[in-house]
Structures are given as C-alpha cells and as structure tokens.
Design a protein around this nucleic acid. Structure first.
Lengths: 193, 193
DNA sequence: GTAATTTCTTGTCATTTGTCAAGTGCTGAT
DNA sequence: ATCAGCACTTGACAAATGACAAGAAATTAC
C-alpha cells in the first residue's frame, strides 16, 4: 500500500522535508478493519498510534446508566490516539470503534519514542498535533457550555457535513450531548426554516 | 522569593532529579498581581509560560451576546498556559484574569524552547503536563455532555471545595455552563436534601 | 424474499434550565 | 455615614430538552 495519504498529512500540517517524513513513516504498517469493529477497547492500554487513512470512527464511554456517550467522531485522514493511555501507558476509559470500513497505518510506542528523541522535526510535529487536538477539544467544550443544541447541530453540519451521510443520527446526537429524539426534532425545525 | 513551591511541583508530577529541576527553573522570574487583574488579554500573543504559586485565576471568552463564559478556573499551585497561543504564537481567544491576589513565576518561550531541546526530562515533563491537561479537559467535556447541572455542581463541590470560598457564584455558574439563577436554585435544592 | 433488527420520527407529558424583574444584604469609595 | 454597585436569591413564566412509547422506514440476516 502506498503511504501517499499518510505522508501528505505531515506536509499538510507544517513544512517538513520529504526525506524526514519518509524516515518517520517507514515503520508504519498498513491494516484494515470492517465496519463496527473495536480498534481499542476500554481498560486496554494503547500500545500503538493509529493514522486513519480512509473511513469513519468514533470513541465513546459508558455513563452510569450504561449509555454510550460518543466523545469524538473521526473523519479520515487523521490520527486517532488515546494520548493519555498511549503516553502514560495506562488503561483507556474510552472505546474506539469503526463506523465504516476503515484503513489504517499504525506504529508502536517504541518507534514514536525513538523518533521523538532523534528527530526535532518529529517533536515539532507531535507538539503541533497535540496543540491542535487540545484546541479542538477546548473549542468543543466552549460550544457545549455556551450554545444551545440547535446551534451545535448547525455548526457540525457546516463543518463536517460528510458525517451525516456516514454516521447514524443516534451517534451524532450523543456527540452533540442530546437524545436522538431531540436531534430529530431539531432537524425537523431547521428544515422548516 | 524562594522557588520551593515551583520546584516541588515538578517533583510532584514525576520523578526527576533536584539538579535538573533547578536547572529548568533558574530562568523563572517572580511577580505578583492584585485581584481582578488581566494576566493575558484576548487577541494578545502569549510569550510567557506562567506558574501560579498562590491564588485563584480564571480564563474566559465572550460569546455572541458578549457574556463572559468561564472556560477554566485555576487553583494554585499549577501552570497557567494558553497552549495554542504560546506554542503557535497566535492571538489567544481567551482572557486570563486573577480572581484573588496572586503570585507567579514566569519564563519566556525562548527559555522553554531551549529547555525543550536540551533536556529530555523537560520534554517528558512538558508532554506529561500537556497530557494531564488534555485529559482533564476531556473529562470536563464528557461531564458537560453526559451529566445534568446538579451533578456537575456536586462534582465540583467535591473536587474543588475551596473555590466556593474564593470565587463568585456567578463565575462558577458560567464555568458549569448554567446561569447564576439556576446555580442558586440548585444550591437551594441540594441544601434541602 | 421475508423476517428481524435497527434507525428515525413523532406524540405526550415531565423535568430542567433560561429569562426577566424585583428584593435583600454586603462591600467599598468618598 | 451614605450611597452606589455587586453578589446572591427568589418568583413567575417561557423555552429547551428528556423520557417513554408507538409506528414508519431502512437495513441486515438468513
């Protein structure tokens, strides 16, 4: 499998030499998963870092009533990592599941550590990836506390329209922090306007 | 001013040699701010990293109705950073304000960069700090989407009772994503039980 | 192709939270 | 000492969202 998409992802984030990217990605291995497969289960320790090349994924937790709360929806191409589990080598609280047939590139914690210590460019890249993820999470949190469900729905529809063709409304609803009934009503309202 | 609290903070996070910590913190400068002072204003670029030694702070944004939404409440001792602004050198969306008289240690981006490149232990520390912050933010986000206001209030009261003695209920309410009226009613309800 | 399952919508009603306005009590400036 | 402003509470009502159940539509399994 060609690593074109993986390599391009590095270039899209910040300026970096082709040779360095190839050096970083040479340890990445390709694999595929069918729809509705668990990539990383709750309570497991993440030992790999994953790049989602094609497809859709989500992470979710179970609340006290054993309902699945979708914490994130991933649209390829992107990295899919449980930072806490991966870097602190502790069990994850979340479950990572494919929402469509997916293709991935993975590499081990050891390879990441090696690159991190040997390649300043990889450190820059990792830091940037961290910061971008942190920032997205912060934006999402601000959205959750300061905007009503309809606004959050409209923002998601605008920023990520594809997921509405590929992810069930029930999952999107739990990502928005509402029930599927409420989302259904909001969609009805919006379509009337 | 003695750097005891600052130095101890490093040791409390992970095992690290005393000499290395002293090497890291030798460039930190001490300063104080009165209550209700802006540490870092919206649209400014953060050029310093701050360690809050004593006191309480918050960060907030303005929503479309120009209401202040508290994004974070900081209880000393802790680092107070706008990661995105600091590491990408771009304007911050948030304003950082003291909620009590505060004392700080600060150092420049250049010093952080130098330490980051020269000291593997500092890289580890930074990564850990980042992962911890990311994880806290993720937990908060999950709480916001999956629990009702009363539960969020009770959790905050349990995890951080001090802030109720030091931060106004209006600010705490906006941190919890509700109005001050609602928080007042919730408190009344809870006290009845 | 048919049955089973899942997804999505909708109705009814309850609960939570917001909005606005008023009132009380505290604090700080002069 | 007084006044202005702020923090907090409360009441009345409105809006948003949830809970539950039923049914329609789409998808999946066999």
């Amino acid at each position: 499998m060609a690593k074109r998409i993986l390599n391009n992802y590095f270039h899209s984030l910040f300026p970096i030499e082709k040779e360095i990217v190839q050096n970083i990605t040479k340890t990445f291995k390709y694999f595929q998963l069918d729809k509705n497969t668990i990539l990383l289960a709750k309570n497991k320790i993440s030992t790999k870092t994953y790049f989602l090349e094609h497809g859709y994924m989500r992470s979710y937790i179970l609340n006290e009533d054993n309902e699945e709360i979708t914490t994130n929806i991933y649209t390829a191409p992107c990295f899919v990592n449980d930072f806490l589990s991966f870097f602190k080598q502790q069990p994850t609280k979340e479950t990572y599941q494919t929402l469509s047939d997916c293709s991935f590139w993975e590499t081990s914690l050891e390879n990441v550590q090696t690159n991190f210590h040997n390649l300043p460019e990889f450190r820059e890249f990792s830091r940037l990836l961290f910061v971008i993820n942190y920032s997205k999470l912060n934006d999402r949190m601000i959205e959750m506390v300061s905007q009503k469900a309809e606004t959050r729905y409209l923002n998601l529809l605008k920023q990520n329209p594809h997921i509405f063709q590929n992810v069930s409304l029930k999952i999107i609803a739990s990502y928005l922090g509402i029930t599927d009934s409420s989302l259904s009503r909001i969609r009805k309202n919006v379509s009337k306007m």
